[in-house]
Design a binder for these strands. Structure first.
Lengths: 340, 340
DNA sequence: CGTCAACATGTTATCGTCAACATCGCGATG
DNA sequence: CATCGCGATGTTGACGATAACATGTTGACG
């Protein structure tokens, strides 16, 4: 199953073209084109006849030809991270739905952050004449790789708050502070943090904000525990949480669930001995044991806004400044006041 | 943000074409084409010169033109369900990765099962001249809608064991029996089941097999609890589980997690009072409380096999019969022997 | 030394659509 | 009644690539 080159190609007989429809309707192909594109100034009767011919022949417009002629494809390219995490996946679905509303479809490709991988993804998508590019840029390096693109509008998604003019993101700093303020206000003073994949923008922002928060409140900086977004990593990190820590801020929900499992194995009760806050609010978090306090990110809103901006850009409107999307805290049973 | 018709279209100046490259390299455009397509019989020096020109101009092949000329697009159309569940999403990622290996990319669109929605999806994808179609057909009705398609190879994915010649699926019957046999062999005799979305093939197969199993073993048919795959629904169904039931088979993991939460709220201990088995083996299941016994479905394998079949079909090879993919049981702490 | 293969390359037609311009018919108008 | 204008349609030439065929240059060989 390697990439064989020319491939036997059976080239099945193509379907009917505009000419076939035109012939059948007794008009010129251009009239068919006009009907298809809802141009004014077609006699109702003619339109009727053309539409009948289209139906009878099962004609379907050839978008390759259309794209060639117009330079537009009605497809937006989406570059996704290679691993299916909750955030990007949810956002992708939201994008797909919103895009469909305005007549676009997403063409997906995945890429890691190295420039070779990004380069391939870009070549592929631009070669397809996508009308715009949505980049789920989880790593600062991709910004550089994509910055050179001027052919089409580019929008970054899920990049934290950086690159604000051309990006849609949930405000990571605000979200992190919601979580930490909550813990602090419950009386907790010994905090630890489990991070997401090192280097990814969101993981970095949550981590940086965590450390800032400690400093602001004069709290001790215990070692940051490295995670990778997975429940497995959360579990492993949970085994390493220091004695005496009463507040654990975890960079996403699956890791939080893993960490809680580890803590309980160690005989620590959540939230009796230690409070835990996650991030994302995945649907299962409400039913975790105990119910997970977490920061809700509205990925549907991210997707919707992304498409709306992309659509505007395609039509040549320069968008104003973009407000980050505000997350909110969902308090459940994994957090409790510090015991005296 | 409605689907405006012609749209202002700014038509940004297109990039360089083959002719530009040819001019720069001092050859004909056809020679450029030959270099691009790795044709034999090009003098190394000429090839060198062309490649230099390509690099210097930042030339990128126009796939719309290529697709028009060849009738192939190197894109495979994927029709997904509208809601992002674990199975389809995981499979999508697997497909994307596998497809990339053989030089294809997925063009995604979602559709519900009604024929209008499917029709639109098909029009869109076939209009794009996709080389093949992968349909995640979770509902029997879509089979009919897609059956009319003869333009390109079509493959069904995740349809349970039906439609075997043209589909790739995890063996739902076998998976369900793994779960039930496990519970039965632990001594349980009072079973209940929480279903997935009514009508979806997989939900239906799990449910039917569950009922069959009860009959085979002469067990009482307690009411089947209707779910919709979501943890919320699992929670609600969990509140309805009958007194005296000691074995709960849930059609997926998120619902199982929700159900366990409900059971514990009711004062029932899992697995002490009631054993629970899920389906899917989502990564968080290992760290649920208690660790969830579940049926693992290898979606990566599904995606891989799907692409391999699609690739074969595109190249005109008729595939032999397709074996379903075997699931396996992962035993964790949510199941225990029946107490005397 | 003429001929013919083989290699390397150029030329022309074609894919299906849209865009720009041309035409045709007909009622209104001066 | 010639002409203008406009509504409705037809004609021609891109778009950027591939495919099929044509051409020109070598070198081997009788």
């Amino acid at each position: 199953m390697r990439p064989e080159r020319p491939a036997p190609l059976a080239k099945q007989g193509r379907g009917p073209s505009m000419h076939d429809v035109a012939a059948r309707a007794g008009v010129s192909h251009q009239t068919v084109s006009r009907v298809l594109n809802d141009f004014p100034g077609i006699r109702p009767e003619t339109r009727e006849r053309v539409q009948a011919a289209i139906r009878e022949l099962g004609y379907r417009r050839n978008m390759a030809a259309r794209a060639l002629a117009t330079g537009r494809s009605e497809v937006i390219g989406v570059i996704m991270p290679e691993v299916p995490h909750f955030g990007p996946t949810s956002t992708l679905y939201a994008i797909e739905h919103a895009a469909k509303q305005v007549g676009f479809k997403p063409l997906i490709t995945t890429a890691s952050w190295d420039s070779e991988s990004m380069g391939e993804a870009l070549d592929f998508l631009l070669g397809r004449a996508v009308d715009a590019l949505v980049v789920m840029a989880q790593h600062p390096d991709v910004l550089a790789a994509v910055d050179a693109i001027t052919d089409v509008p580019v929008l970054f998604v899920l990049t934290g708050n950086s690159h604000a003019e051309r990006s849609v993101a949930v405000d990571q700093v605000a979200g992190t502070r919601l979580a930490l303020d909550h813990l602090y206000s419950l009386g907790h003073r010994r905090f630890q943090h489990i991070t997401g994949i090192a280097g990814l923008t969101e993981a970095q922002l949550r981590r940086d904000t965590f450390l800032e928060f400690l400093d602001e409140h004069g709290l001790e900086r215990l070692p940051v525990l490295e995670g990778d977004w997975s429940a497995d990593a959360g579990y492993r990190a949970g085994l390493e949480v220091e004695e005496g820590v009463t507040a654990l801020f975890v960079a996403n929900d699956p890791m939080a669930i893993g960490a809680i499992h580890a803590l309980e194995e160690r005989g620590l009760s959540v939230p009796r001995d230690i409070s835990v806050v996650g991030f994302d609010d995945v649907p299962e978090s409400a039913y975790a044991h105990p119910g997970l306090t977490t920061v809700h990110q509205d990925f549907a809103a991210v997707g919707l806004r992304a498409v709306s901006l992309v659509f505007a850009a395609i039509n040549g409107k320069e968008p104003g400044p973009v407000e980050p999307i505000e997350p909110w805290l969902v308090v459940r049973d994994s957090t409790a006041p510090l015991r005296a």
